[in-house]
Simulated assay, not measured.
Amino acid sequence: MLQVGRLKKLHFLYNCGLLLIVTYLVACNNSEVKTIQPKTDYIHEIPGKNDTIPVAIAQKGEVLIAYSDCYTCHKEEKRSVGPAFKDIAKRYPVQRVYIDMLAQKVISGGKGAWGSATMIDHPKVPIEEAKLMVSYILSLK
């Protein structure tokens, strides 16, 4: 009789130990492993001096953007489908060469400069209007 009581205690301790081990293993396997991703430079700022943009030019560009479909994919402050206007302004120096290049990109569209998003082409936008729009964007520095 004494032996049976002792066996029940050993069986109970064995089950408790087994339960603790299983609980520990389950808890360890479910813990989240967080990996720290290195911060990538989304903007890839191009060094260079900034020319001035006359206020009247920037205002005309702002009006043209307001009447266009630009805000469908871009926001001023936050990244959306495409980059934020302020991020574009951070990347490119205010120089005639970048205004011309970006105006051409507005007209012909593009892909890859800001990730996987594709900017649709706007072939009906005259080059001078595209330059005004880009000038406004770059004025947001």
Rank of each mutant, 00 (worst) to 15 (best):
8 K>D: 06
8 K>H: 10
9 K>M: 11
11 H>R: 13
12 F>Y: 14
13 L>D: 01
14 Y>A: 15
15 N>W: 05
16 C>S: 12
18 L>V: 08
18 L>M: 13
20 L>F: 06
21 I>M: 12
23 T>Y: 13
28 C>Y: 11
28 C>P: 00
29 N>D: 09
30 N>M: 13
31 S>I: 14
37 Q>L: 10
41 D>V: 02
44 H>W: 03
51 D>F: 07
51 D>P: 03
53 I>V: 15
54 P>C: 05
57 I>P: 04
57 I>C: 08
58 A>N: 13
58 A>Y: 07
60 K>C: 03
63 V>E: 15
64 L>W: 01
68 S>W: 06
68 S>D: 06
69 D>N: 14
73 C>W: 01
74 H>L: 01
78 K>W: 08
78 K>T: 14
79 R>F: 09
87 D>H: 10
94 V>C: 06
96 R>L: 11
98 Y>M: 09
99 I>G: 03
105 K>I: 11
106 V>P: 01
106 V>T: 01
110 G>Q: 07
114 W>I: 08
115 G>H: 03
117 A>T: 13
118 T>L: 14
119 M>D: 01
120 I>A: 11
121 D>Q: 13
123 P>R: 06
123 P>A: 07
126 P>G: 05
128 E>N: 10
128 E>F: 10
130 A>H: 08
131 K>N: 00
134 V>M: 12
136 Y>E: 03
137 I>C: 02
138 L>M: 08
